[in-house]
């Protein structure tokens, strides 16, 4: 008998089980020198990061860059957060983080209210920004649109 023949059906069963039992992957915090959260690559996995600074360096920095100055290389430009007057109203950056805009993905389903508040408060007090007020997680919650869902599952591409 061919030993590996039965695998297909078995894996289909795995598919069924995972559809119902798969736990939300919440990984442990990363070692300080590691720019990754272990196991964060799972579908819908959350990043267990609490500090605005960490959330910024793991996610926002991808486009707004480590120095908060954004980037520009034609035809693209990512806005600087450094000395950005649009950050004056705390609600504005929170809404952009939740909903996305242009090339900026929506982070509403990836980040919790607390994380969005932490990230917004971090950028509003860093990179030469010195806004005195801060946003609370409850305010973030009230800005969320009803029924936001994660974007298209791209696995398999």
């Amino acid at each position: 008998m061919n030993l590996i023949q039965p695998i297909r059906t078995a894996f289909c069963a795995a598919a069924l089980i995972s559809a119902t039992l798969s736990p939300l992957a919440l990984a442990e915090s990363p070692p300080a020198d590691m720019p990754f959260v272990p196991s964060a690559g799972g579908r819908n996995a959350r990043l267990p990061l609490a500090e605005g600074k960490e959330i910024y360096s793991h996610i926002c920095q991808g486009c707004h860059m480590a120095d908060g100055r954004g980037g520009s290389l034609s035809p693209a430009a990512y806005p600087a957060l450094a000395s950005n007057a649009k950050l004056a109203a705390k609600v504005y950056p929170a809404l952009v983080v939740i909903n996305g805009q242009g090339a900026m993905p929506a982070f509403g389903t990836l980040l919790s209210d607390e994380q969005i508040a932490a990230a917004v408060n971090y950028v509003r007090t860093t990179f030469s920004n010195t806004y005195a007020d801060s946003i609370a997680s409850g305010e973030v919650r009230s800005l969320r649109p009803a029924g936001q869902t994660a974007p298209t599952d791209l696995r398999g591409r």
């Binding site: 964060a40 690559g41 799972g42 996995a45 990043l47 793991h58 920095q61 991808g62």
Partner: peptide
């Protein structure tokens, strides 16, 4: 693709991405 680790890799310099 499409998840938190993709952002984390994007946030690094090309050399760092390869290193990791």
């Amino acid at each position: 693709i499409g998840n938190a680790s993709a952002y984390e890799f994007t946030a690094l310099s090309p050399q760092e991405r390869v290193k990791w």
